[in-house]
Design a binder for these strands. Structure first.
Lengths: 283, 283
DNA sequence: TGTTTTAATGAAAAATATTTTCATTTTTCT
DNA sequence: AGAAAAATGAAAATATTTTTCATTAAAACA
């Protein structure tokens, strides 16, 4: 995978017309080495030297020299363009999905507010208990999160059933935290549950992929993940993965924060599951 | 081994005293990139710019620029493994987890057998129904998969409860497919359920991160994901994501295979959920 | 061994390449 | 449509690379 081309695609939207011409050239010449001099490339792209320097800087290089060298370093790895088409084999699709996930992670890093993740983690760390709710694919994210938080030593529960969600919220009190997970940010039942929680003085956090969405209005802390419309379909695969990495980073932070847990939680968890494993010798 | 260093050694005898100093520096710094400018290198080698140009030409390059780029191209892409430490902020952890996920995807692409994914997808595509089972974090993977397969137009169910898993298997028949998900590949209950299924002539697929694991012996098709031992902890975050991208690629393939579905499944799914969304105007 | 010839070297000049600056153009917002 | 902001490229300012050439070091020969 060519990281430079991926990065160029990632930042494509931010570029001006002329910078896009540089990106286009790069994207349409994967595997090529860059011309020796910036002037040659400027001519090829029908652009100017300064634009190319700006392009290189946008990608994180100090200038054209670094870009040139980095492109050379990336060579021999072919680019997979992340549009899935009907003739792709399963394995090709896997490659494209991995690419897409990578881009989604990069977008999430840009979208999410660092201080909000920290705030969310600290809120959960100090909470009496944490309840996570979501529907559809967000229900499995919620379940996964509850699973991990519990293993990290925090009281966490998830509910995927709208009735149970309301019941759970009605049993919560100040000092508890409700985490609502919704890609669209507009799931009625989740918004309702969040509203109820908020009215009862319970802290609320949402993880959503849609800015200015209803669920945000009911949240004390907003974790905004990859907001890009998924290019493939409503399966919304990559955005789902982004929500998981956000959960994972919260979880890691919690593990490290939990002094008592830090050293031994791995072993403890391993031991608690030991009886559930096949004794390989008998297998 | 680095081709450029090899060449330098080959031609070492022909060089003058000063050129040898340049060769020595290169040989004693394998894996390093060359300094940005020829003057820097001249200083490091206690030599001069002109000598370095001569050295580069002797090796067959047109000048320092080409040598520099060629050295960069030769570099083995050594990846920095991001180890999370206790002083990292949540946001830093997020970055490292994304990196880790990326590496995990790369490993999965190398480990998984392309023909096996295809076989698994085709098996599911032709099945009367598909049952997915897993425990712990694999339960949420199973749930996520069932959710997506159903949306893609296939009969799919997941069970996270060991009793329900056995009951579900006992109700299956030839023509059905059982997918067992287990990172360790050694979960007793999953292996049991798979064995039962196999004895009853039901096709079995496993998704696991452990080669030569018990669950593999009960499987017709093995999807082996990232087998790297997780560097961080038993939370096994990245391997979890790898299993999800495998599910996602199966799912996409199924979507494209399902002729009837292809065009309109997105819209249908969107419509079926419409009543569950907040009407934004009222919000 | 001393002298001549040849090769190697580096300082500085010349040629190239890159980066910055800034006036002009284009786009966006009102 | 007009004002403000952003993007662009020409040209100036830097920086880098290459060439030149005087000097030095090494080899060849008497």
């Amino acid at each position: 995978m060519n990281k430079i081309i991926l990065k160029a695609q990632l930042l494509y939207g931010d570029m001006g017309k002329s910078e896009k011409k540089v990106a286009d050239w790069l994207i349409s010449h994967p595997g090529d080495n860059l011309p020796m001099s910036i002037s040659e490339l400027a001519e090829l792209c029908e652009s100017s030297e300064s634009t190319i320097v700006r392009f290189a800087r946008r990608l994180g290089f100090s200038g054209y020299g670094e870009l040139k060298i980095s492109v050379a370093g990336e060579q021999e790895k072919k680019v997979v363009l992340p549009t899935i088409d009907e003739n792709d084999s399963c394995f090709e699709i896997l490659g494209k999905i991995c690419n897409d996930a990578y881009l989604s992670f990069e977008r999430t890093k840009r979208t999410i507010a660092p201080e909000n993740i920290a705030a969310a983690a600290n809120l959960i760390a100090g909470a009496r208990k944490t309840v996570l709710i979501g529907l559809g694919s967000s229900a499995s994210v919620a379940q996964d999160a509850a699973n991990k938080f519990l293993r990290a030593g925090y009281e966490a529960f998830s509910y995927g059933d709208t009735h149970m969600q309301m019941i759970a919220v009605s049993r919560m009190r100040a000092g508890d935290v409700l985490v609502g997970i919704s890609q669209s940010g507009a799931s009625k039942d989740i918004v309702e549950a969040m509203r109820l929680a908020k009215s009862r003085g319970i802290s609320t956090i949402c993880i959503t992929g849609t800015d200015r969405s209803p669920v945000m209005k009911q949240s004390d802390i907003v974790l905004l993940t990859d907001t890009e419309e998924t290019k493939h379909s409503s399966l919304a695969l990559s955005s789902h993965l982004s929500r998981l990495v956000v959960i994972d980073s919260l979880c890691y932070y919690l593990v490290y924060r939990n002094e008592a847990n830090r050293g031994n939680f791995e072993d403890e968890n391993q031991n608690s599951l030991k009886s559930k494993r096949v004794n390989e010798a008998n297998e």
